[in-house]
Design a protein around this nucleic acid. Structure first.
Lengths: 395, 395
DNA sequence: TAAAACTTTATAATTTTTTTAAAAAGATTT
DNA sequence: AAATCTTTTTAAAAAAATTATAAAGTTTTA
């Protein structure tokens, strides 16, 4: 690697440290980058000259001479487009480098299944949003997109949705159409990334993040980094053979964890129980519209509706059985329950803990902490922004 | 880290490269160590002066000027004591740095369960073997020991066997008693290490090694290195909840994979079937001794005995179901069937493949190769030697 | 309360290491 | 068979890491 490239790599690395932790000293940067103080000092001086970083006065004392601290310079306007795609709705927001919302969140209904115009509509939506923001393209570092499906971030392809004819990858296609660097990844991986950098898993080495959404996803942090497996598809948690039920899964197999734990299944079951005469606070919405939106279901559970709680608990017990498997295999420090289903976190915890008591070697279960995410509501967007930060060039 | 320490680290690293690959050129060493050629050149010259390495003439041409190649110097006598402990028998051998057997393999019956004199007997056995070898202690780099149980290599403790009173760790206790550096690890981890360095997984990044022995173990290679989990106990494959059977497992839970797949269970089942009148080539041994040694059972299966094959196949199908779970979660490049049970590898493959067809997303299963180990018979001893090489100091 | 002792950061000088360039040796092509 | 291309080896220059020293605070202690 040439000298200039190495120096650019160090610049990128230092900016990332500031992105994750606002104020840092030279000594801290040197420790984290494993580079010498003189080198870090001169690189930081270069970043100050280029306007990326500014001096922030003396840091708090740690028992000796107080260190100068530095932080990102808001005047250097650089932005990130973060996109979170789910089965029904696509959300987009623009952040600055301090993770402040620069351009407000916009949602668009965009159904992934059986939608031939999907990719085209998606591109139009983003084009319109970005141009409407008024931010010049050269101030945008890139677009990070989280989406469901079998996604390989490295190859830049999705084998399930947004399929393209021909040889071009989805990543390259979007990048060409939108005129900006594009980075795509699996939704669960991005949620895990957000938990690693900003959530419960901050600075931890081995963390598993369960994404409770339309399906059950898994993002894996191994040795302090996202683990993707040899061809990019690790964490296919929802299709492990675990359920006793004989229902056919969307993947074509029977016994997948997913068939009894997805939000789709839970809502179907709640509907069926109401049809069979069960009373619930969800009745009104369901009876009048014949629909039961996920939010209504989750909020009902959250506020203690017995039907919703019962349906959710049954599913959570099975998720807990899956988590027991994960604990045995991975011996993680922490498992985080995240994704949109995590708003019902407190209700999920009891049956999951019960399953762990039943299926885990107690001594092993003790080594793993289980927590509900505190950043779940915008974890995927945060993760999408992080994906850009991790992969873009600061110039 | 001081300059001298860094130089010693590089020396150790280079010697390790020679241990794994006999002949290497300076350019190759530079690539692997990520150090510059001048530095590698001068370090190798130092190692030649100290007698560790010798020039080995010109390497084969790769299209330009032929490079000098180097190799370990056999005259620098350095040896490794490798120990493989299983539930019944303990084996020990002394290797040189070329993995040649310097002092022949010795076996001792040593039952781990309910054996109060275990640790003492174990130490006596090793003391006698080492002193009987006539090799001066200062030529022995260390003792590597693989053993069953919940072993933390980092902490140097075993929570299942060789328990000690007081605060001293097993590793430290053995080291003090034997007067040599001692390194301990889980048997399955060492088998995985051997497969990574000398077997089917050589130079691969994500490999899972299933250890088919008295129980079912798992050693995990992640990102090119042994993965141990956050507290050292990753890979507890045999106790994941997978079996439909209601039998109680030794761990106190029901439904563990182990209850239907361990060699112990298989032999019990073969005995029961013979008692019930099934005919088999194993009858003679069983009828006369009322015992059925593992070797007899495995050899019967290998030579096509229908009863043994049937028992083995049923267990292998369940192992295959567990492997399906592993494929979904880890997306490994390769899964190796190793351990003493791997001698019946060909018979295992069919039911395992069948289970994968039934329980894996086909598209995902295609990304993982399944192989039977070619170094299984002495994988654990090789792994124990490797453990020493990885952790000792060459001085 | 003030000086001494201790910590930590910042800068300078030195040593180590890497990079770059050039030379040497061997293979391949014309 | 000479010329061109590759690769290794050596040498010189540049970059980075150590080490040492100075500077700036904190804490301890008399």
């Amino acid at each position: 690697m040439s000298v200039q490239m190495k120096q650019q790599v160090l610049r990128n690395e230092l900016i990332k440290f500031f992105y994750y932790d606002n104020r840092l000293t030279l000594a801290e940067l040197s420790r984290r980058s494993h580079k010498s103080l003189p080198l870090v000092t001169s690189t930081v001086n270069g970043l100050i000259e280029d306007g990326y970083i500014q001096d922030n006065g003396l840091a708090a004392s740690t028992g000796g001479r107080r260190a100068s601290s530095f932080q990102l310079n808001a005047d250097k306007q650089r932005y990130i487009v973060a996109v979170a795609v789910d089965q029904m709705v696509t959300q987009v927001v623009i952040y600055d480098l301090m993770n402040n919302v620069k351009v407000g969140l916009q949602k668009k209904e965009l159904v992934l299944h059986d939608n031939p115009a999907l990719t085209e509509t998606f591109i139009e939506f983003l084009k319109y949003y970005i141009s409407g923001s008024g931010i010049p393209l050269n101030q945008i570092l890139g677009i990070g997109i989280g989406m469901p499906g079998f996604v390989s971030a490295i190859k830049g392809v999705n084998h399930t949705f947004f399929k393209l004819g021909g040889n071009v990858t989805l990543k390259d296609h979007l990048s060409k159409e939108l005129g900006l660097p594009v980075f795509i990844d699996n939704d669960s991986s991005l949620i895990a990334l957000a938990e690693l950098k900003f959530g419960a898993g901050k600075d931890l080495k081995d963390v598993l993040v369960v994404n409770i959404g339309w399906g059950i996803g898994l993002g894996m942090i191994v040795n302090g980094g996202l683990f993707r497996g040899h061809s990019g598809y690790a964490g296919e948690f929802s299709h492990i053979p675990l359920s006793q039920s004989n229902k056919m899964c969307s993947c074509g197999k029977r016994g997948c964890l997913e068939v009894d734990t997805s939000l789709v299944f839970m809502i179907e079951r709640a509907k069926a129980e109401m049809d069979a005469g069960a009373s619930s606070s969800m009745e009104q919405v369901y009876k009048t519209t014949r629909e039961l939106p996920a939010d209504v279901f989750l909020n009902a559970a959250k506020s203690g509706d017995p039907l919703a709680v019962s349906v959710l608990s049954d599913a959570a017990f099975l998720v807990g059985k899956g988590i027991s498997t994960l604990i045995h295999i991975m011996n993680p420090m922490l498992i985080v329950l995240s994704g949109r289903g995590a708003v019902a976190g407190k209700i999920l915890m009891a049956p999951i803990q019960q399953a762990i008591n039943e299926f885990c070697i107690p001594w092993l279960a003790e080594q793993t902490d289980i927590q509900v995410s505190t950043v779940a509501t915008n974890a995927e967007l945060l993760g999408a922004a992080t994906l850009v930060i991790e992969n873009c060039d600061f110039n």
